[in-house]
């Protein structure tokens, strides 16, 4: 199976470690990962902020970069959601028939990492080792947009050495929301404060999730308050082994 990694512009720039973890993990499971160099961005920020015409070339670029792969995997629930739900909207509104067809062809093959692992590759025990107290924040887009359900937790439960604790009011939004955090900074901060309280209540050393964007927001707050709680993308926990701990 030809698996292409869609790293997302955000992870590419700020969280390359997550991308390396995905590669290490999939290769450990015996798969070959390719990285199409032409890829850039899914257009989520433009789309969600109302700059739809600006998203059009990015949608086109995505379909071109990933044409011909059996599966496209991304360590971002919200970018997966953007591609699956909204590329068709952009193509419909601004694109031509060719783009609409290309989008329709590619979207069913785009998987968020835990979907690829559980649904396509059929594994929940990925042989990981992570001897820490961890809590999992299901991001809104992973929960309600692409509906990951309990896939991330099923994977985490199989990690050896892990002490997985439940996050109170886990399904409540952390307040990131992309440009929302800038446009409605006060509301975003109020939501963040409640989310951080939940995290601290668990006594976890590590907060993980399926999206680095929300983690940057929550982790940024936790760091500012010098709480000592680390944030880590799920992929990095799944990639960790006894021989190669993180």
């Amino acid at each position: 199976m030809r698996i292409a990694l869609f790293i997302t512009c955000f992870n590419d720039t700020l969280y390359p470690g997550t991308g390396r973890a995905v590669v290490r993990l999939l290769e450990r499971l015996g798969h070959t990962v390719e990285f199409p160099q032409a890829q850039t961005c899914c257009g989520q920020m433009h789309f969600n902020t109302g700059y739809r015409p600006e998203a059009l070339p990015l949608v086109r670029g995505f379909t071109e970069a990933f044409a011909g792969y059996d599966a496209v995997v991304t360590p971002s629930a919200s970018c997966a959601g953007m591609v699956r739900d909204n590329h068709a909207v952009v193509a419909e509104q601004y694109g031509d028939g060719e783009l609409r067809r290309a989008v329709a062809g590619i979207t069913p093959r785009v998987y968020e990492l835990t979907e690829l692992l559980v649904d396509v590759l059929g594994v929940t025990d990925v042989g990981a080792f992570f001897p820490h107290r961890v809590t999992y924040h299901p991001t809104c887009h992973s929960l309600r947009m692409i509906r990951l359900g309990d896939r991330p937790l099923r994977l985490l439960r199989e990690v050896r050495g892990i002490d997985l604790v439940e996050l109170p009011r886990a399904d409540s939004c952390c307040g990131f929301g992309g440009t929302f955090a800038l446009k409605n900074a006060d509301t975003s901060t109020a939501m963040l404060a409640d989310k951080m309280r939940g995290v601290l209540d668990t006594g976890a050393e590590v907060l993980c999730s399926a999206d680095n964007s929300c983690l940057m927001h929550i982790g940024g707050g936790l760091s500012r308050l010098r709480t000592g709680v680390r944030t880590l993308h799920l992929a990095e926990i799944l990639a960790a082994t006894e021989g190669d701990p993180r």
């Binding site: 590419d12 969280y15 390359p16 390396r20 990285f35 900074a185 940057m216 707050g221 760091s223 500012r224």
Partner: peptide, 25 residues
């Protein structure tokens, strides 16, 4: 600039020295 509204309550990771794509390359 406007990013102050973000950094008022949060630290931000410094962009790492090497992006994923340059690591891959």
């Amino acid at each position: 600039g406007p990013l102050r509204r973000w950094s008022g309550a949060r630290d931000t990771p410094a962009p790492p020295a090497e992006s994923f794509r340059s690591w891959w390359k």
